[in-house]
Design a protein around this nucleic acid. Structure first.
Length: 953
RNA sequence: GCUCGGGUGGCGGAAUUGGUAUACGCGCAACACUUAAAAUGUUGUCCGCAAUGCGGAUACGGGUUCGACUCCCGUCCCGAGCACCA
């Protein structure tokens, strides 16, 4: 017997306790426990693919460490699990293997459940759910009908993304940027069909604004904000006229974030989808060509349409024109596919002088470009002195090089030629004078100039802030003749006149004003930032910010907020999903299925083979059922719901997973919701996470839940990659099979290794290291040996001082890092503890403290040793994580470094109580310090207790 | 292009948030045990050199400070997400 115990037999231990925990219902979570706070730990539930991989271990077993830690902190922890079981793989497997998707799913759930038990998690299996269970999807359907009744679920004809391989409609989110389907990889086609949508756009503002109150990692919030894409601007109306000068009632409504540039709008562009084109078709003389353009634009795939390098295309609407409401000028109307139908109003006012896209289009179609914004460079400062000046760019015609004055590193490096404008002087004359004075070159021709530029800078030599109104001028030398310069000697050394290549100029001219002028002339860069208004009538001289609302008001426009987020298309033309709970009356009007007829079950008499027609349309049973319940002539909806709907509310169902009257009991919900901690994959940031926030807000609006947000905290976890650092994939042959490692080294080893591999709260990518796992296993064996030889067989009465210190250090670290999800450093500290105390005396009590700290990460071995060593029959998970004694940590002598002039030269053991005076004397006597301080004056002696001593000579 | 991360040994990563940079683990090397190997244990392991010492190193260049991986300015590189969003 004793012999057997000496060896760490993970298999026996792990199986024993997994069984015991299940039988004793150790992790069954009551709705509440007197005197304990509820704590809801949630992890994204898996799709039952039938095979558990390392990613699942990283998701579930490591999140379990956190759940167990919270339990040891005295919380009533709920850590539920279920299966997101609808979806294409089951259906495809069914078709391929001629099995029923339901059977396939059930089998997979069973086998995955077994694999998951091997993790030793604190899952409460009694609450398990599967979205394919009619008792679950009854409520998915009920929520849908509630949305329908409030106008949030609606059907409309829409151009949708069609996956020709999976033969289904895809949400925008499921289409990759290159225009292929996320799942099947097929090139997505455009198809026009009647489609179910959820009006998530009604919630856009709240989904955006409420993020501010959430205590989530800011990158997740930023990414959602980015996705929702809120922008504040103005809606402005442009009148329409035909060639006979008739006005129309219809107006072109545009959305713009830059109403301050309205005076510069020299044409208007409609999206190909814009309805107005049809309305005006009588008046458009080239309507046939326009229609042809629209056709080609529509046929374009996502890839072509979103390519940025793409040439701008478009067509002018002949016979009609728009009136700029500010200038009252008549301007042309175009149709172009660079304007999107689904965003804003589907039409834009084009300001080519101050918008890159409009500029590219205007260049191509030779449209007028009108400057209305004077640029600002540099940052405005206090007490600015005003000046007027010019900046001249002079080009050498022989090689295209730029004439530059190099002031040296300290004074700003390369600049163009600049100078102050004298009273009443013409800028061109001024520039000519400056060029000759500063460079000596005298023969050049004038090419062009910029608008006025407002430049803010600090003139360091004069020690003043300046704002200069500058004009950039462009000259080309006609020859290289120079005049003799009579500069004073000291002036000569100050700068160097040189020709530099354009590439070098672009890099070396760093001054914002000179850089702007260079880019303006050489790279045709346009100014798109805010500035001062010009050429804008009574608004001249205002800043962009000031002018935005004033101009909007002037033309009777309206300030408005627009979002990028679009309505969520949720209908799927496949079998294995929640049936849309809608029936149509004989007139074809949709009606929600009443609660008493839910669940509206998925018919079984269906051939799954995809044909493009929804499989449910082939079900006789469904048809008959509909007529039987609703009457003759009534027909069922035959689409199923996007699986993202199933997962948008599942976390509520865990609270009361067997309730047949409602989603979950209201009192229970308020005890558990919001979720305290939600762990999941980064890929769900803009999909699942946003959708479920939307659902939760809706359920809050109809009184089901009473918080406006579902998740208090969110963690996006990292990924485990193959040993080669690449993503694990069968084709790369780098897949790690967790079952095999669990068999060989044990569940605790895998858990501890995954905890140790890197910080859990940073979504990095950590390669699996087979040797690393073995190293962790060695650590567990060491614990086992120590327990057997020193705690069980030859127990010590008392711990040594060293052990007491180390256990307190460890407990402190555990309290700091477990809640921060820095499991890697907790494990490292446990290893350090063992290294430091291996040869020290350790008492049972202190060893149990160590086991409790270890138990979240390695539950089986901890439970086993606790069971042997402690005198109780309780589980280790009903213990409390011990407290540490700050006094013990404080009283300890600490070895700290002694710096001399910032360099560490020696170290010394110091205890807290020692006074600075005595310490100083002691230190200055130390030979390794004396060596440095001899014959030198000590200017400063800095002592930061517990940290450092710093001597300045 | 926009938004957000990040850059520390041969590798995964630590660093009390401005205080002895490289904890812990892997790898590597030497030694011990062994007929041998594996396992295990011990010791060493940032780089350079004239090597118990000195100098240099946290992507690069500056700055602030007694003191900078940490803060500030600039540059380069890598990763994630979005992308003709008006």
């Amino acid at each position: 017997m004793q012999e057997n115990n000496k060896e760490y037999n993970h298999k026996n231990i792990e199986q024993k306790w997994q069984k015991a925990w299940q039988e004793n219902k150790t992790f069954k979570t009551p709705d509440s426990i007197e005197g304990k706070d509820n704590f809801y730990t949630l992890v994204e539930f898996p799709y039952p693919s039938g095979d558990l991989h390392v990613g699942h271990w990283y998701a579930f077993a490591v999140t379990d460490i956190y759940a167990k830690y919270q339990r040891l902190m005295g919380k009533n922890v709920l850590f539920p699990i279920g299966f997101d079981a609808f979806g294409l793989p089951a259906e495809n497997a069914a078709i391929k293997n001629k099995v029923n998707p339901d059977d396939w799913t059930r089998q997979n759930i069973e086998s995955m459940k077994k694999q998951m038990v091997a993790m030793g998690n604190s899952f409460d299996w009694d609450r398990m759910i599967a979205t394919t269970d009619p008792r679950y999807y009854k409520w998915t359907q009920w929520i849908f009908t509630q949305m329908f009744e409030r106008g949030l679920a609606y059907k409309k004809k829409a151009t949708v993304n069609w996956d020709p391989v999976d033969k289904t409609v895809l949400a925008n989110e499921q289409v990759m940027p290159d225009g292929t389907a996320e799942r099947s990889g097929a090139v997505v086609e455009k198809k026009e069909i009647d489609q179910w949508f959820l009006k998530i756009t009604d919630y856009a503002e709240r989904l955006y604004d409420d993020l501010d109150e959430l205590d989530w990692p800011s990158q997740i919030k930023d990414q959602q904000k980015n996705w929702i894409g809120k922008s504040y601007g103005a809606e402005l109306n442009f009148d329409i006229k035909d060639s006979a000068d008739n006005s129309f009632e219809e107006k072109i409504k545009v959305f713009t974030t830059r109403p301050d540039t309205l005076f510069g709008a020299t044409y208007v562009v409609l999206a190909p989808e814009n309805e107005l084109i049809n309305t005006l078709s009588d008046k458009i003389s080239n309507i046939n060509e326009v229609k042809k353009y629209i056709e080609t634009a529509r046929a374009k795939t996502e890839i072509e349409r979103t390519k940025i390098e793409k040439e701008k295309t478009g067509i002018k609407l002949d016979g009609v024109s728009a009136i700029n409401p500010a200038t009252k000028e008549e301007i042309p109307i175009f149709v172009a596919d660079y304007v999107l139908g689904g965003y804003g109003t589907g039409s834009v006012m084009a300001v080519p002088a101050h918008d890159e896209r409009d500029y590219a289009f205007a260049k191509k179609f030779d449209l007028p470009i009108k400057y209305v914004i004077e640029p600002i460079t540099g940052e405005p400062q206090e007490d600015e002195e005003k000046r007027q000046s010019i900046v001249a760019l002079v080009e050498n015609p022989e090689n295209g090089e730029i004439l530059s004055i190099n002031w040296g590193e300290k004074l700003g490096g390369n600049l163009l030629i600049g100078g102050g404008l004298k009273e009443g002087e013409d800028p061109i004359e001024c520039a000519k004078r400056e060029i000759i004075e500063e460079t000596g070159y005298k023969n050049f021709e004038y090419i062009g100039k910029t608008e006025l530029i407002h430049h803010h800078y600090r003139a360091h030599s004069k020690n003043v802030n300046r704002e200069i109104d500058a004009i950039g001028l462009y000259f080309r030398l006609t020859n290289l003749e120079k005049i003799e310069q009579n500069l004073e000697d000291d002036e000569k050394d100050k700068f160097k006149v040189e020709f530099i290549s354009k590439e070098k100029a672009e890099k070396n001219i760093k001054d914002p004003l000179h850089n702007y002028i260079f880019n303006k002339f050489i790279n045709e860069k346009i100014y798109t930032d805010n500035g001062f208004l010009t050429n804008s009538g009574e608004f001249n001289g205002l800043t962009s910010q000031e002018a935005k609302e004033k101009i909007t008001e002037f033309v009777s426009g309206e300030m408005k907020t627009t979002f990028k987020l679009r309505d969520w298309s949720v209908g799927r033309q496949r079998y294995w999903g929640t049936p849309v709970p809608i029936v149509y009356d004989p007139e074809g009007k949709p009606h929600p299925i009443p609660k008493e007829n839910l669940p509206w079950t998925l018919p079984a008499d269906v051939d799954y083979t995809p044909t493009g027609e929804p499989p449910l349309a082939k079900s006789k049973e469904l048809k008959e059922r509909t007529e039987e319940i609703f009457g003759k002539g009534w027909t069922p909806e035959v689409e199923t719901l996007d699986t993202f709907i199933d997962s948008s509310w599942y976390f509520l169902r865990y609270i009361d997973s067997n309730n047949s009257d409602t989603i979950a009991d209201k009192d229970k919900l308020s005890q558990w919701i919001p979720v305290d901690f939600y762990s999941g994959g980064a890929e769900h940031t803009t999909l699942h996470l946003l959708y479920s926030r939307f659902f939760h807000k809706f359920l809050s609006d109809i009184g089901i839940v009473d918080t406006k947000e579902p998740y208090k905290n969110r963690l996006n976890r990292g990924l485990i990659s193959g040993t080669d650092g690449n993503k694990m994939s069968k084709s790369k042959g780098n897949v790690i099979n967790p079952d095999e490692i669990v068999e060989r080294l044990g569940s605790d080893t895998v858990r501890l290794y995954l905890a140790f591999i890197g910080p859990y709260n940073e979504p990095g990518s950590y390669p699996w290291d087979p040797n690393g796992v073995v190293g962790v296993r060695r650590f567990l064996e060491k614990i086992w040996r120590l327990a057997q030889n020193r705690v069980i067989e030859n127990p010590s009465e008392k711990s040594s001082d060293k052990t007491i210190l180390e256990i307190n250090k460890l407990i402190k670290k555990a309290h700091e890092d477990y809640p921060e999800l820095k499991f890697n450093t907790v494990v490292a500290s446990m290893m350090s503890f063992l290294n430091a105390t291996e040869k020290e005396e350790i008492s049972k009590e202190d060893f149990i403290k160590f086991l409790i700290v270890l138990s979240p990460a390695a539950p089986h071995i901890s439970e086993e040793l606790f069971n042997i060593i402690s005198n109780t029959q309780e589980t280790i998970f009903d213990q409390k994580i011990p407290d540490f004694d700050e006094a013990i940590l404080q009283n300890q002598e600490k070895i700290i470094g002694i710096q001399i002039n910032g360099k560490v030269r020696a170290e010394i053991a110091v205890s807290e109580s020692e006074s600075e005076e005595i310490l100083k004397e002691k230190i200055l006597e130390m030979p390794e310090i004396k060596k440095w301080t001899e014959d030198k004056e000590i200017r400063k002696f800095i002592y930061i207790p517990g940290r450092i001593i710093s001597i300045v000579l």
